[in-house]
């Protein structure tokens, strides 16, 4: 059984259909990349999975349970964390406050301290800046905070939306390294990226979205050598 199964998902913004019945699945332990051009429906897909946008039709099954109509805040204790596009850290709050909010649904204080240590280990920069307001961090640091905050909920599945957007090349490499390490710790990753080359280089499998439909899918390595993908997304 797949960890996450999306079947025939349809989403509308008013009368405009953003997702035209897409289906895909994510197995335990994988890194799945969703790639595609602007407006293809990548962010919509993630936001529908995590309950921010309602689905018109189709089902989302997580650990065998239908979560299609579940309120977004109920998914966090089930083990789904979402690192949103544009990071959306709480700018007026400190780094530590942001991290604690990530663990909002957990109540065991000792376990929390443990997780905080793990997150600080993964992102030493966050520990150095724990009392600084999140809004004063650089883009790369904010991305780390958004990822650290998601890890605080101790997720089984982490959904990441454009983690490399707007970052300098050094940070991009660092962020992708970290994604691999998070996955190495046993967290399944569903990744949306414009940087298709980078995404495919770390993914297990990938799906290519084109205007609301899945155009191609397969092993990341195969897709990387696919002529169509090369031409459209890898600018070769």
């Amino acid at each position: 059984m797949a960890l996450l199964e999306v079947n025939g998902l349809e989403v509308y913004y008013g009368v405009i259909q953003a997702l035209k019945g897409i289906s895909f699945d994510v197995e335990q332990g994988e890194i799945i990349a969703l790639i595609g051009a602007n407006g293809a429906g990548k962010t919509t897909t993630l936001q529908t999975i995590t309950g921010l946008i309602p689905a018109k039709a189709g089902t989302i099954i997580y650990e065998g349970r239908d979560i299609t109509r579940l309120a977004g805040h109920k998914l966090v204790p089930m083990g789904i964390a979402h690192v949103p596009e544009g990071r959306r850290v709480f700018a007026q709050l400190s780094v530590l406050q942001n991290l604690k909010l990530g663990a909002y649904t957990r109540s065991d204080k000792n376990e929390l301290e443990e997780t905080l240590k793990v997150v600080y280990n993964r992102f030493p920069r966050l520990e150095e800046r724990k009392n600084q307001l999140a809004g004063t961090l650089s883009g790369g640091e904010q991305q780390m905070l958004a990822m650290g905050r998601a890890l605080m909920s101790h997720p089984k599945l982490i959904v990441m939306d454009e983690p490399s957007m707007g970052l300098s090349p050094i940070y991009v490499n660092e962020i992708f390294d970290i994604i691999q390490k998070i996955n190495g710790d046993g967290v399944t990753v569903l990744l949306v990226e414009q940087n298709a080359k980078k995404a495919l280089s770390i993914a297990t499998r990938a799906y290519v979205l084109e205007t609301g439909s899945i155009a191609l899918s397969g092993d990341a390595g195969e897709l990387m050598n696919n002529d169509q993908v090369k031409k459209a997304y890898l600018s070769e």
């Binding site: 921010l52 309120a71 109920k74 966090v76 959306r88 709480f90 700018a91 909010l101 909002y104």
Partner: peptide, 10 residues
Amino acid sequence: EDKGAATLMG
């Protein structure tokens, strides 16, 4: 600050 991000925190 951000209702959507707050929802994502649970």
